[in-house]
Design a protein around this nucleic acid. Structure first.
Length: 462
RNA sequence: GGUACUCUGGCAGAACGGUUAUGCGUGGGCCUGCAAAGCCUAUACAAGGGGGUUCGACUCCCUCGGGUACCUCCA
């Protein structure tokens, strides 16, 4: 499959004939995760599920940044320790992302648990005279990495002239960045150069190389990480290893709200918790996948509602397939083949989830058409459902299973409603229908029979 | 100011140098005891403005304009 690589600015072939190693820059755990984080992580979740579905093993590493100024500040303002802040928000993270049906990564390394690796990493950089010690910390010297700027396509002299950061006089070059910051205040660790804590970028270099090796397949994150985070990671890692770092750099566009980036400073955050409560995982996932991953996507109730409509069609389809029992039938193989091919081709071609969703909805629509026309035989339904389920799995959607008892109860109620209808006692029949509706069961009356479906309860719909 | 990306019908959003994208919405219809759901059908003079290349451009080039992001922490 082909993916757009930020570094070469071209599509690169992802080799799926052997294990695919992915490193995704995760979150800094100092606050609740929001829908912007969700988008990036959901995109990678689907990518991972798709590759795995092809039969290729995926090693998926996603870090937690648990040492950082923001965490320290937060701990101070809440009068607690950084450990408590980070563990609280890690717990929170898993609650959110398990709720979003995101498969757990192979490993979630934390910076604080890799201080030794980070120190060894820095030692090697110092040994190669690529990093140097100054009065405030240890710095990476960008002049030792002539390709600095290659990822973000920035020219070093332009960066310097435009820099609005206060220049630290102890640095050789204003663009040099800290790999180790001296500090006696907790959290701090001893190092050969003095007590302190790691700089932001170094953890990802040290941990990605530790877990995935010096050159792995995909390194990703949000677009806003291209500079300086990923630029600096490349500088460190390639200097360290004297070889090419990640083969493909994949960056996910921002979630905007009214056209503006969702960010804490603008105060326009939609937390995952909030959106999950109101819309549920399926609709959020459809929303996040509704545009090309590299482009921004604008958050709005209107768009979520559109995805709700689509999700209802999927639910209907699912239950129609389960209950299918028509005498007549139509050859469904061409439909399955067409939509399945389109779905795969879309993902193969720079992971175009929007087109993949189109194919998915087309299959849904065809199945619903057959059901409406009473042309859906048991066997047809079975093979459509197999393919539909495959797509659902890759997209990470889920339709909750129902217990046999629940089904029996529903069947019984439908049966008594049928009796009332035959006897034209519509008031009693409608009472039963209302009762079922309260259980989120919707009835679909076909000519000869009634099919039921369980609707996911979406709070925002009411 | 610099750099990158972006500008498609009411909304969302693709592909492609020449063929209807598609979905949502909207109108009509089918089904139904009535609904709902679903289906069918119709609907959009669409390409930010202006130039150019071309037999032909939404698609390539130039230019002007709008937007967003990054240049500081950020998914």
């Amino acid at each position: 499959m082909k993916l757009q690589d930020t570094l070469s600015n071209s599509e690169q072939e992802l080799d799926v004939s052997k294990k695919v190693r992915i490193y995704l820059c995760g979150v800094t755990v100092y606050d609740e995760s929001h829908i912007g984080h969700a988008r990036t992580i959901i995109v990678f979740d689907v990518l991972r599920k798709y590759v795995e579905r092809k039969g290729t093993e995926v090693e998926f590493i996603q870090n937690f940044t648990d040492v950082d100024d923001k965490i320290i500040n937060r701990a101070q303002s809440e009068n607690t320790t950084t450990e408590e802040i980070s563990s609280k928000y890690i717990k929170n993270y898993f609650k959110d992302f398990d709720g979003l049906n995101v498969k757990r990564a192979t490993n979630y390394p934390k910076a604080t648990e890799h201080i030794d690796d980070i120190i060894k990493f820095i030692e090697k950089l110092i040994g190669k005279q690529i990093a140097y010690t100054s009065k405030n910390g240890v710095y990476f010297s960008i002049s030792k990495f002539p390709e600095y700027g290659k990822l973000s396509k920035k020219k070093i002299d332009e960066l310097q002239s435009g820099a609005r950061i206060e220049v630290d006089e102890a640095k050789i070059d204003p663009l040099d960045f800290a790999v180790w910051k001296f500090s006696d205040a907790e959290p701090a660790w001893d190092s050969p150069w003095g007590k302190g804590r790691p700089g932001w970028h170094i953890e990802c270099s040290a941990m990605s190389i530790k877990y995935l090796g010096e050159n792995f397949e995909i390194h990703g994150g949000g677009r806003d990480l291209i500079f300086p985070h990923h630029e600096n990671e490349i500088a460190q890692s390639e200097s360290y290893a004297d070889s090419t770092f990640a083969k493909i750099w994949m960056h996910v566009g921002m979630v905007t709200i009214n056209g503006e980036k969702m960010s804490k400073s603008l105060g326009n955050i939609k937390s995952i918790k909030h959106v999950l409560e109101n819309w549920g995982a399926n609709i959020i996932r459809l929303f996040c996948l509704s545009g090309h991953y590299s482009k921004p996507i604008d958050y709005s109730e209107e768009l979520l509602n559109e995805n709700l409509t689509k999700w209802r069609q999927v639910e209907t389809c699912y239950y129609e397939l389960i209950h299918a029992d028509s005498e007549n039938h139509e050859d469904v193989k061409p439909i399955i083949e067409k939509t399945s091919t389109e779905f795969n081709n879309a993902l193969e071609s720079d992971f175009n989830t929007h087109l993949a969703l189109s194919a998915f909805f087309q299959l849904v629509k065809e199945a619903n058409r057959l059901a409406a026309e009473e042309k859906l035989g048991k066997e047809d339904a079975r093979i459509i459902k197999t393919e539909l389920q495959r797509m659902i799995d890759i997209l990470g959607l889920s339709i909750p299973e129902m217990t046999e008892n629940e089904k029996k109860e529903i069947d019984n109620l439908i049966e008594s409603r049928e009796k009332f209808r035959k006897e034209k006692q519509f008031e009693d029949a409608d009472k039963i229908r209302d009762k079922l509706n309260e259980m989120n069961i919707e009835l679909i009356d076909h000519k000869e029979r009634t099919v039921w479906m369980k609707k996911e309860n979406i709070k925002a719909e009411n």
